[in-house]
Amino acid sequence: MNSSPEPKLLSWLSIRKRLPLYLAFAATGFSCALPGALMPWLLARWSLQDSEVGLLLGLFFVGGTSGALLSRGSLRWSIFRGTLCTSIGAALLPFASGRTANGAILLFGLGLGITMTSISLLQSRRWTETRPAEMTRLNLLWAIGACTAPWIILHEGIRNTANAKNVLLLLASAFAAFGVWVAAFERDEPRPTPSQAAAGSLKLAGFAAPLSLLVLVLCATGVEASSAGWLATYSQRSGDSLRITIGAPTCFWIGLLTSRLVHSSAAIGRATKRFLLTWNLLAMATALAALILFRNGPVLLSAAFAIGFAAGPIYPLLLALVFEHDSGNTVYVIGGIGSALLPLLTGTVSSRTGSLRMGIAVPCAAAMIMAITGWSVMRMREPALRENVSGDSSSTA
């Protein structure tokens, strides 16, 4: 396991070592943005109700949660299993309909969940000294991949249905090729020793407001998944042009990418954690409220960008916080539950009320809960952080 300090600028050898996993992680970002981008196309093709769309999105993220649970044992072979499931699911989606679509998207999500979790755990074990930076880097690459999906799928799919099918088949081929590469050339990293795992569990149990931290993880992934999954459909129903329908989800992912670029160093600094959580969570709740209250094109695009930008530093920061106490896959399971639950609730509320605007109130309420919970968590942690800072100052003196 490589635990030696890493230079600020990655060496060429280090980049070559990381590059295949980085490319694969960017491909998972592209794939995770696909369901939301595909929904207007699927709604027209299959005449789906909002509750059925919510079920599809929910199944996708249920697959992701199950994948996090199945990321055990050899991480190298876990990545191989994940890429195999992703490849099969992506290949089936263009030809699926009805119940077969439910199975295909569940398998697709399952494969992505296994692949993302296993790559994250592998890199977390491999680069222990720079773990927070590595997690931020992976999430940045994930966002880069996600930015491209809405434009490619919505633009090409609306022009020609065959183009959307070809994109999915090319994606299936790419994941299959990466799986073969992992099986042939990648290597595993040793698991933490039992004593280290026990220490991590004790720290997590003694952590200030651990339930609040889990609530944050649950809501953070849920709000992000619900926003990404429903923005294209919400924009289409607002009566705006194709440009807005494509632009809203694209602005969301661009906002997420821009935010992670801006916060790539600040997100791992202890001095700014309270600011990043409280103010970005408040900004996210405000932008979601604006999305509900004003449905014209410029507001949709601006609110979508603001939601993505506010969400950017939150999940990497929560990952870094959890990994200080637990290097397992618990955080991915909790995050997956949120990702499955909120899109499903959004569709259910929309169908019951006959208004997708009321459905969007679900992630908006979750964002408000996050803002309150995040402020509470960081307020409770502040005395401990001050003790650490004063201890470091006295030791250096």
Rank of each mutant, 00 (worst) to 15 (best):
N2Y: 11
P5A: 01
E6I: 08
K8Y: 06
L13G: 01
S14Y: 02
S14V: 04
L19R: 11
P20A: 06
L21T: 14
Y22H: 08
A24E: 11
A24S: 14
G29K: 13
S31G: 10
S31Y: 13
C32H: 14
G36R: 01
A37R: 10
A37M: 09
P40K: 04
L42W: 06
W46G: 00
S47L: 00
S47N: 01
L56G: 00
G58K: 04
G63C: 02
G64K: 01
G67C: 02
L75W: 11
S78E: 14
F80H: 06
L84E: 14
S87L: 04
A90T: 13
A90K: 06
A90F: 11
A91G: 07
P94W: 08
P94V: 10
A104S: 12
I105C: 02
L110I: 04
G111M: 07
G113M: 06
R125D: 05
T128L: 11
L138M: 12
L140K: 10
I144W: 12
P150Q: 09
P150E: 08
I153E: 09
I153T: 12
N160S: 15
A164Y: 15
L170F: 15
A172K: 07
A184H: 14
F185T: 15
E186I: 10
R187N: 09
P192C: 12
S195E: 10
G206K: 05
F207K: 00
L213Q: 04
L214Q: 02
V215C: 06
L216M: 06
C219S: 07
V223G: 05
A228L: 08
T233K: 03
Y234I: 01
S235G: 07
Q236F: 03
D240Y: 14
L242M: 10
R243F: 14
I246C: 02
G247D: 06
G247W: 12
C251G: 11
I254L: 07
I254W: 09
H263C: 01
A267W: 10
A271P: 08
K273W: 14
R274M: 09
R274P: 06
F275R: 03
W279I: 04
L282K: 11
M284A: 11
T286F: 14
A290F: 11
G308N: 05
F309Q: 00
Y315Q: 00
L317E: 10
L319W: 13
V322G: 01
D326N: 10
N329H: 13
V331E: 00
V331Y: 08
Y332G: 00
L341N: 00
T348M: 05
I360P: 01
A361P: 12
I369K: 06
R379M: 07
R386S: 12
N388P: 08
S393M: 15
S393Q: 15
S394Q: 15
S394W: 15
